[in-house]
Every structure is written in C-alpha cells, then in structure tokens.
Amino acid sequence: MEIPYQLALWGVRIAFLLVLYILLVRSFGALWRTLRTESELAARPALAYLIVQRSHATGPRVGERLPLRAASTIGRDSGNDVVINDDAASARHALIQLADGSWWIEDQGSTNGTLLNGSRLARRERIRDGDVLDVGRVALRFEATL
C-alpha cells in the first residue's frame, strides 16, 4: 500500500526536526562530558607543590604549599597559577611544566631572572624533588608527588 505523498512529506519534515533535536542533545551531552572531566581533573590532588622557604612582607607565607598543575605560570600578576606578590618578581616570571615524564622550569623573560639552586636559568631546565627556586625575593622548594 502506498503512503500518501503529503503524509510522507510531513514524515520527512518531522524527521528533520527530530534530527535537529538529536544533534542538539548529543552536542549538549558532549559539552557536559568535557565539563565533567575538567572538574574531575580540578578535584584531583596537585601533581606537585612549591613550598615557600623564604618570603617577603607582601609575598606568600613561609611554609605555605602552593599546588602545581601540569603547566603552571609563576609571577606577580594575579592571573598566574602561582602568584608571587613581590616587587622583585615580574608579572609573568616563570613557567613550570610536566613534559615527557619529568618537570621543567623555564624563565619567561623576567627582569630579575629565575634562580635554580642558586644559578640563573638561561634555558629550560629539568627540576627535581628538593630543588630550590628563587623568584624575586621569594625562595620556593619544589616537591614532586609522583
């Protein structure tokens, strides 16, 4: 038996609307999943810490444990992952990141430079558990949890 043409046409039109909604629900689901993974990532304990050893009046408290992510920026600006509120630190001072299974520290063109165990960083260098960083007048001990 033939389906009347107009009825079939309405079937196609409803199918169009249906597909539009399936697409919407699917993309919303995908959006939801990415947001959930992100919040799970954020809830995990930090991959490493910087522990404040020496500080300055406006800087972080001595003994404070500053959590690090897979890539964390260090600097005076409040947009940094690790904020060092010290005049001698640059707005964007250094970058510390996990790559190929080890941690690396890189100076971001800061005015006063970054010291790793007392020597000034010229290029990206590996940083290990217990190493000490000097950013401005603040000294930070690196502690890896991995």
Partner: peptide
C-alpha cells in the same frame, strides 16, 4: 558521531524542500 547527525540533517532538509 555528531557529524553523522549533521549529514542526516542536511539530507532530510533537502528532501523536504525539493519534495514540497
């Protein structure tokens, strides 16, 4: 997976318009 639905969307849209 999303592109499959995009493909169906344009197909149904064109059939509906040319059918009308």
């Amino acid at each position: 997976g999303l592109l499959v639905w995009v493909a169906l969307l344009i197909l149904f849209g064109f059939i509906a318009v040319s059918g009308a």
